[in-house]
Nucleic acid binder design. Structure first.
Length: 576
RNA sequence: CGGAGUGUGGUGCAGUGGUAGCACGCACGGUUCGGGACCGUGAGGUCGUGAGUUCAAUUCUCACCACUCCGACCA
């Protein structure tokens, strides 16, 4: 490719409306162009990367027996009524009517389509196990798109669906997919990624794992044990909580606290610390409107995800006054709530003594409350977020908290969809059975942008050789010189003939522009020739990632480049 | 959906009650040229949309729309 003909411009200024390093660089380097909120066009360089990532995914999915298919983007309502998701998914799914006033939707995931494809297609136990996958556009009407391709509304996803007759078979296959995913991310060039236990959200099912690119700008919080490699999304993470001291001093005592309502204010007022308080966090269930009160130690935060699972409903904020409670003064002792209300005590309260809690009376709190004495019958649940410094439940080592971008996930769906849609398989013993499913997703655009977050530097993008839009940036300086011009054309042709993916900077402009462009675009190897290097009949070769520079005789250039490219790919894929 | 902010040539910004300017980019000519060169010339904008106030609105008022950030949500 000649850069003079390449569609897209590089720009110097940081585009307004982008804050993530990766997003800024993609815009500045002329890789993407925004069309609407969370909607992007990919320019040629980004599409080249996109396709290379897709090919890696394809190879690895094929290697574990996957068969590539293509589901429709537009589906009729009826298909989604079968699983119940036409109604259960809310505004995140785009719906519209066709010319016949028929309810249609844009696919945001394809479980229904996958089961539809397999239903009456795979009919015998001999047809299973089986995995189908596609790489295709999805549309999710995200409430808040952000970070360029990190959270887009329209995006490319690889989604795979496997069907099994036994849980054991799914378990085995699930492990295979997990390994394939690790290979995929390594081949793409990720070095900082972790596999964490995940939350299952609206997909249903039990076991799931998320693949997280570790970065400070990630949306998810991860809990990681550096010792035993326990790792989990904070939504579902568990930990050994700090011990409470067990000495009881003095009886309960109601104290006036006036306008002190938050834990901070109450602690300041009563001169105690947050570890000796119990706070209430209140919600109501969206399903049935039942009051939910969760008590936890004052210095902990509620894990809404876990709480939501306990009550088997989503939660919404509640005006507790409606239930006759005093906001800011809710406490464990003397709590008076409707019969159908849920009241939970977090494990951080276990054994807590001499603590302060609301008096359930306006402007008053109670001091010297003791769990063992005053709340003897309390049973404890785990509804607090893991904090930095807590211990691993598996090995006791100190846990660390980090952030990540979810670049892939795998789920064990079970029979949620096959049962709902009535897919059955004939078994050897003459009975029928609903297949057990797994589903496996990779956000291609997210991977593309996340790898930038991991590798880019202050000069611009840095692409791993395996997915780079071009392997070599060929940058002749003083191309206005007839000699250089002729040699450049010749070398360019030879590179292309040798199968090197090369971007030829054929512009007759000053060196600075060309060199900075080469760095901004992140092409892994840069080859410079100029009157200076040609005086020694050699080329200057620079490695983008390390800045390492070497001089290679022109006669050896093509073969040396081939070797360097090969070596670099081998280096990326060496542990596989 | 709550909170905050921004909409002015391709990009980044300034500005004014009398219908617009800078930098970069772009085109052409010339001089340069191994780290975003310089000189000259030129093209390019219904100032987000609609209404209102006014002799006059890009500027003031209101409404709407779009986009960004924080939060909620997130297969």
């Amino acid at each position: 490719m000649k850069i003079s003909k390449l569609v897209g411009k590089r720009v110097k200024e940081n585009p307004s409306g982008a804050t993530l390093k990766s997003h800024i660089l993609l815009l500045r380097a002329g890789f993407i162009k925004q069309v609407g909120a969370g909607i992007f066009s990919l320019l040629p360089p980004a599409q080249k990367v996109n396709l290379k990532i897709q090919n890696i995914i394809r190879e690895e999915m094929n290697a574990i027996g996957g068969q590539e298919v293509l589901f429709p983007v537009v589906m009729p309502r009826e298909l989604w009524d079968l699983s119940g998701r036409y109604s259960s998914i809310k505004s995140e799914m785009i719906r519209f009517k066709d010319r016949n006033n028929h309810d249609m939707l844009l696919g945001m995931t394809h479980e229904e389509a996958a089961v539809h494809m397999m239903m009456n297609t795979a009919t015998s136990h001999e047809d299973l196990p089986c995995m189908i996958y596609q790489i295709q556009t999805k549309f999710r009407d995200e409430a808040r798109p952000r970070g360029g391709l990190i959270r887009a509304r329209e995006f490319t996803m690889k989604d795979a669906y496997s069907f099994h007759t036994t849980q054991e078979d799914l378990d085995n296959y699930y492990k295979k997919v997990l390994d394939a995913y690790i290979r995929i991310y390594k081949r793409i060039g990720f070095r900082k990624f972790v596999v964490v236990e995940g939350d299952n959200g609206i997909m249903g099912g039990k076991i799931s794992h998320e693949f997280m690119a570790v970065t400070d700008v990630g949306e998810d919080y991860l809990v990681i044990c550096p010792e035993c490699h326990y790792s989990s999304n904070r939504e579902v993470a568990v930990s050994v909580k700090e011990e409470n001291d067990h000495t009881v001093v003095g009886g309960m005592q109601e104290v006036f606290t006036g306008n002190a309502h938050t834990i901070e204010e109450v602690c300041a007022f009563l001169e105690t610390d947050e570890k000796h308080t119990a706070k209430a966090v209140c919600y109501k269930t969206t399903d049935g409107g039942r009051l939910v009160i969760a008590f936890l130690r004052g210095d902990y935060e509620i894990n809404e995800s876990k709480l939501s699972k306990l009550v088997k409903s989503e939660l919404e904020y509640v005006d507790v006054e409606e239930y006759g409670l005093c906001a800011g003064n809710i406490g464990l002792v003397g709590l008076n709530v409707p019969d159908d209300a849920y009241v939970f005590y977090d494990q951080t309260l276990k054994g807590l003594e001499n603590f302060v809690t609301g008096a359930n009376k306006k402007d008053f709190h109670i001091k010297n409350v003791s769990m063992s004495r005053d709340m003897k019958d309390a049973t404890f649940v785990d509804i607090s977020l893991v904090k930095e410094g807590e211990k691993c439940v598996h090995c006791g080592h100190t846990l660390t908290l980090t952030r990540g971008i979810e670049i892939g996930n795998i789920f064990q769906l079970g029979t949620r969809y096959t049962k709902a849609m009535g897919m059955k398989i004939n078994m050897p013993d003459g009975t029928t059975k609903e297949p057990i499913m797994g589903c496996y997703g990779i956000g291609v655009g997210r991977a593309l942008e996340s790898i930038i977050e991991e590798k880019a530097d202050d000069k611009g993008l840095v692409w791993p050789m395996t997915i780079a839009p071009w392997q070599v940036y060929f940058c002749p300086i003083r191309i206005d010189d007839d000699n250089i011009s002729a040699i450049s054309e010749e070398l360019y042709k030879r590179m292309e003939k040798a199968g090197i993916d090369v971007l030829f900077d054929d512009r007759a402009i000053s060196a600075g522009v060309k060199l900075t462009d080469s760095e901004l675009m992140g092409v892994p190897i840069r080859v410079v020739i100029s009157p200076k290097t040609m005086a020694n009949t050699e080329a200057e070769v620079t490695i983008r990632e390390t800045g390492e520079k070497l001089f290679i005789p022109i006669n050896d250039l093509i073969s040396e480049l081939k070797i360097m490219i090969e070596d670099e790919i081998n280096e990326i894929e060496k542990d596989l």
